[in-house]
Amino acid sequence: MAQSALAWQGMQTPRRGKAYSSWAGAARTGEMIGFSPPRRAAIQRATLPFLVLLSATMVMLGKADQVMFESLRVSVTDTALPALDVLSRPLAALGHLTDRARDFVTVYQDNRRLAEDNERLLNWQQAALKLASENARLRELLKLTPEPVTTFITARVIANSGGAYVRSLMVHAGSDNGVERGQAAVTGEGLVGRVSEVGSRAARVLLVTDLNSRVPVIVEGPQQRALLTGDNSGRPCLRYLDAGAGIKIGDRVVTSGQGGVFPPGLPVGVVASLDGEAPRVEPYVELSRVEYLRIVDYGLADGLPKPVPIASRSGRRAEPFAGAQLGRR
């Protein structure tokens, strides 16, 4: 291949000396720093195999030491942020336009549904107010330590992974805004994932569906603890369930709080299928349509183990429950 390129470039040289000097690439670089033609040709010939080898080495190094490229990744992300932010807006606008058209068509049904919902929710509001005051009274009686105050940052999604092998989102908020590694990413419907990398102005959220995502959960109903394990499909699996756990389709799945990464009780999804080797969960959040999400600080981010450099790493994988949501990224 490099030979063909050479032949092709060589063919140009005698006929068009000027064009030769204006060409981009390794040849030009070589000429600029004054290599002789045979040397330049050798460099040219070696460039492609060298870069192929370099890429392969990077893949292997990245596999062996997963922390190695994190700072590079974070700085590249921060640098590319303005471009990604600007370019993501037209697509988002297009999405709004189609949403608006759909809303226009369904306005009558939506109105009826919302009126019914409103009536139902007003009843719930009364129940919630009653429970809240009862809770407050009981907490006072028990002298219960107050739960840490949760704060959140709303961030816009500016990029995704664009491929079949990784499920993550990049959001326009970083350490400058108070985002920290390990914080939960949620929408009004439920859990989206957790912050896996933080730059100064951007952060990456590893989705619950990613191959490397592990979330300790409880299946409400049978009150079964399990590990929600992503496999890059739209429906993550429930692993480490007791045999004969009595799980049914439609059971709610919420975070268990085990491992100390997420607080208990965050809605995740519902059991959607019991076929195959493990039950599958349909997340409440439609992950491909998320445009804004909240990065929530429950005061628990310290619970996430810090990435361990390869030199001091003893085992290859962490214990599933102790290192909740550990992953490559």
């Binding site: 370099l54 990077m58 893949v59 596999k63 092998y165 990784v166 990049m170 990224r329």
Partner: peptide, 11 residues
Amino acid sequence: LLAGVPPGVTA
């Protein structure tokens, strides 16, 4: 790096 894929794969 931007997509969160192991570096070197696309290259």
